[in-house]
Amino acid sequence: METEFTLNGHAEVVDAPDHELLIDTLRARMRLTGTKRSCDVEICGACTVLRDGQAISACTTLTADVDGADVVTVEGLADGDELHPVQQAFVDHSAAQCGFCTPGMVMSVVALCLEYPDADEERIKEYLSSTLCRCTGYVKIIEAAQQALEQM
């Protein structure tokens, strides 16, 4: 089945089997490996991408289900060498360690900023509880989210 969608600002047409998952289209077909596969049961959030501005798990989304949608992955945030404010906040706060959760965590914070621009610490914690990190203990990620919210 052909799926037409916008990926990181570019129009794409993908002719993939009906059962292909978005994570495989991104990683294997488009070679966009920023979207990570970890728990594979839509809990950890490492494969978080935005579909029409909303966070979804690419591991449990059919590629066909982004037909007509605007999809943004971690590769689509920076403008050349100019980082997205959320990415810059992660840099400023050393909010990544092994980095495997980082793309999904960055996308989750982007979604948070879009949805709740006035989020306080409780809201941030509640929101980011949908995305797991095993290295940082979340402290610096929460600080990064606070900075991003202030700047956006």
Binding site: E42, I43, Q54, A55, I56, S57, A111, Y127, S129
Partner: peptide, 9 residues
């Protein structure tokens, strides 16, 4: 319910 991504879809 579940998490934000699940609730979005």
């Amino acid at each position: 319910v579940a998490n934000i991504r699940v609730r979005n879809a």
